[in-house]
């Protein structure tokens, strides 16, 4: 058994350049054994390149990648105990579902009877029992996705890589698969590395998240840490909506001219002249815009100091008529002291 303190994956100053473009730039990273780890970032941020280097489809220009302590930087994909679920599933169209799933075992010359047994177990795990004889072209997108998952998991890899596997599914199916993936990961106990550009997906499923931007990691942390205490303006902006407080306003509230952030849902909309609690921060402004979104309403408030702040309030009692009438009025915004955080702190 591997030593539990050995990280599943360790990046040691890993870079990958494509000519002038620094796709991945001196990245250090540790992914723990057994965790559900997400790499989050916009397209072109380097997350997929990192995944491809772990899988062995791409090699670092410099630096080293360790898999449970072993340097695998220069090993071909078939010599790494890592399997991948591809974005387009990459099922073999000339093989049926059963043969697709059994592919890894066939290559390793596992006897036929054993193969059939394990394929059936896998089909059960991904809820596709009875589909072994079908061709991939006869399956729906969600079903292909499950076959791709089964085909990777049957090999009991040390690490499973998932490259935006839910991207092609519709919203409802995606949410269902998110829950299922998480429960499968718990059951098999394998380290999952999940690449996505969807912050909500990352926040829902992950034990920890690494936020990528322009080839570098901006922040690594639990979903709560990333959301509540973004380490950079990029993270604050990319993960959820965030209000950045800078300049005059920052100075008045905190006495420092650094950048701070506050999440829109933490801000309360009050009438001007409302009482100020000692633990609350209070600013005044004018409502510039109101967007009624059913479950909640989004307000854009221009603060007297010049900043714009976004405020989100649930429509617990208000109707669309109520909220829209606020437009143009002077309001007071309040939030708890604990809910403002210094960006990068």
């Amino acid at each position: 058994m591997t030593n539990p303190s050995t990280p599943a994956i360790r990046f040691d100053q890993v870079s990958r350049y494509f000519g002038e473009v620094k796709a991945v730039d001196h990245v250090d990273l540790e992914i723990r054994d057994g965790e559900f780890f997400s790499m989050l970032g916009p397209s072109g941020s380097g997350k997929t390149t990192c995944l491809r280097m772990i899988a062995g489809f791409d090699k670092p220009t410099s630096g080293h990648i360790h898999l449970y302590g072993q340097d695998v930087s220069n090993l071909p994909p078939y010599e790494r105990d890592v399997n991948t679920v591809f974005q387009d599933y990459a099922l073999f169209p000339h093989m049926n579902v059963g043969d697709n799933i059994a592919y890894g075992l066939m290559i390793r010359k596992v006897p036929k009877s054993e193969r059939t047994k394990r394929v059936n177990e896998m089909l059960e795990l991904v809820k596709l029992s009875g589909y072994a004889g079908r061709k991939p072209s006869q399956l729906s997108g969600g079903q292909r996705q499950r076959v791709a998952l089964a085909r990777a998991l049957i090999n009991h890899p040390k690490v499973l890589l998932l490259d935006e596997p839910l991207g092609a599914l519709d919203l409802k199916l995606r949410q269902q698969m998110q829950v299922e993936l998480k429960s499968i990961q718990k059951r098999v106990g394998i380290t999952f590395i999940f690449v996505t550009h969807d912050q909500e997906e990352a926040l829902t499923m992950s034990d920890r998240i690494a936020v990528f931007n322009e080839g570098k990691i901006e922040q690594v942390g639990t979903p709560a840490e990333i959301y509540e205490r973004p380490a950079s303006t990029f993270v604050a902006g990319f993960v959820g909506t965030s209000n950045l407080i800078v300049g005059e306003l920052a100075k008045r509230i905190t006495g420092s001219d650094q950048t701070f952030s506050v999440r829109p849902e933490k801000i309360h909309l009050r009438a001007v002249g409302d009482k100020i609690d000692g633990n609350m921060i209070s600013v005044d402004g004018v409502v510039r815009d109101v967007v009624y979104l059913g479950l909640y309403t989004r307000y854009l408030v221009q603060i007297d100091e010049g900043n714009d702040l976004v405020v989100i309030e649930q429509n617990l009692k208000t109707t669309s008529m109520d909220v829209l009438s606020v437009r143009g009025q002077k309001v007071r915004l309040q939030w708890h002291k604990d809910h403002i955080s210094r960006v990068g702190g």
Partner: peptide, 12 residues
């Protein structure tokens, strides 16, 4: 279709 070659090598 897609990354079949990579998938095959990935599977050993």
């Amino acid at each position: 279709h897609g990354s079949q070659i990579e998938a095959s090598m990935d599977l050993g």
